[in-house]
């Protein structure tokens, strides 16, 4: 699915250079569920952003589906992103002015899907995450777990090949957290590749493989049974 080789990313302020990624290499196969762990500042979010094509790297190679994308411009990256990748954030990041239904519908609008198909897809995914009954509510009217389920629904509505989750349970209690992890596992079992950044060993155990980062490098890989 994706192959990263010798990726480098340096953040510069006026007088300090911070190396976020230091010749990092990583390969993720189609259908895998990978957890990325490491202490704060180890570069895991940077890595996730680069994989999510929100950010670019200084040096190195990033093959996505057999295509080198490191030098793509914003427009091409946006295009690739909206067809292939779904995001789940720690703080949900739903748009407050839109209802649950409209939030989930948004990626399909950007893809130019026609109205009938949108309706069918959105309703299907809302059923799946079990918030169909709250479809006309606004985000503030939902509990944290419901908001995150809505965010997951939005991430998967266009059936992306890859889901990137950035501490998806970080703002949730354990019951709601487990529900979301269950949801991600189900999606993975249905064939979607999942890459998740987490601080939680408990959540990481849902994955097939744990990659541990330190100072912008992969320092350990655990394959889980």
């Amino acid at each position: 699915m994706l192959k990263i080789t010798d990726l480098e990313k340096i953040y510069r302020t006026e007088d300090i250079e911070t190396v976020a990624l230091n010749k990092l290499s990583l390969e993720v196969k189609k259908g895998e569920f990978v957890a990325i762990m490491g202490p704060s500042g180890c570069g895991k979010s940077t890595l996730l952003n680069i994989i999510g094509m929100l950010d670019d790297a200084e040096k190195g190679s990033f093959m996505f589906n057999g295509e080198e994308i490191i030098h793509f411009n914003e427009r091409r990256r946006a295009d690739l992103r909206k067809r292939n990748i779904g995001f789940v954030f720690q703080s949900f990041n739903l748009i407050d002015e839109l209802t649950v239904y409209e939030n989930v519908e948004l990626p399909l609008l950007y893809l130019g899907v026609d109205a009938a198909e949108r309706k069918q897809k959105v309703e299907a995914v809302l059923e799946k995450v079990q918030i169909m009954h709250r479809r006309n509510h606004f985000p503030q009217q939902l509990s944290g777990g419901q908001q995150q389920r809505c965010a997951v629904a939005r991430a998967v509505v266009n059936t992306p090949k890859l889901i990137l989750a950035d501490e998806p349970t970080g703002n949730l209690d354990s019951t709601n957290g487990n529900e979301v992890m269950q949801l991600l596992t189900e999606l993975n079992e249905a064939g979607t590749t999942v890459i998740m950044v987490t601080h939680s060993e408990h959540d990481a155990r849902f994955a097939h493989r744990i990659i541990r980062l330190l100072d912008g490098k992969v320092v350990m890989e655990n394959i889980l049974g």
Partner: peptide
């Protein structure tokens, strides 16, 4: 931010 992540271009 959300719109950009979802695939909106500038």
């Amino acid at each position: 931010g959300v719109r950009k992540a979802i695939g909106s271009v500038r």
